[in-house]
C-alpha cells in the first residue's frame, strides 16, 4: 500500500464529483457531488496525515467535516425552500438572475 494509490483515488473521486456537478441538473445530485468533492479533499488530508506522520492534517480534516455538516444543513434547507417556490428540483428552472437576458 503506497500513498500513490490514495492520490489516484482522491483524483478520481474529485473528478467524479466535478463531472456530477457540471453535467446533472437535479439539485440533490449537485449537492451530493459537492459533498463528494469535499470528502475527497478530506481523504487527501488524512493521507497526508499518515505520510507526514503528523496529527495536524487530521485536525484540519476534522474541521472540514464540521464545515461539510454546516454546508449540508444550509444546502438542504435551500433545496426545500426552492422546491416550495417553484415545485421543481431542476437547477435550470432557477434562472431569476438571468431573466433580463431573454428580453435583450
Amino acid at each position: 500500500m503506497t500513498p500513490d494509490m490514495f492520490y489516484l483515488l482522491v483524483s478520481i473521486l474529485f473528478s467524479l464529483g466535478l463531472i456530477g456537478l457540471v453535467s446533472r441538473r437535479n439539485l440533490f445530485i449537485v449537492y451530493m457531488s459537492v459533498e463528494l468533492m469535499l470528502s475527497s479533499v478530506n481523504l487527501l488530508l488524512a493521507t497526508y496525515s499518515k505520510v507526514l506522520g503528523d496529527a495536524n492534517a487530521s485536525a484540519m480534516a476534522l474541521l472540514m467535516i464540521a464545515v461539510v455538516a454546516a454546508e449540508a444543513a444550509l444546502f438542504l434547507a435551500m433545496i426545500i425552500h426552492l422546491y416550495r417556490a417553484k415545485q421543481t428540483i431542476d437547477s435550470d428552472r432557477f434562472d431569476k438572475l438571468g431573466e433580463g437576458r431573454k428580453h435583450a
Binding site: M1, D4, Y7, V10, S11, S15, L18, V51, L52
Partner: peptide
C-alpha cells in the same frame, strides 16, 4: 473534459511524497 485535469491532479499530488512515514 475533466480527464486531463484528473491526470494533472494525480501527477501534482504524487510529486510530493511517495512513502508513508513510520509512525
Amino acid at each position: 473534459l475533466v480527464a486531463p485535469f484528473t491526470f494533472l491532479l494525480y501527477k501534482t499530488l504524487s510529486a510530493a511524497h511517495r512513502n508513508f512515514a513510520q509512525m
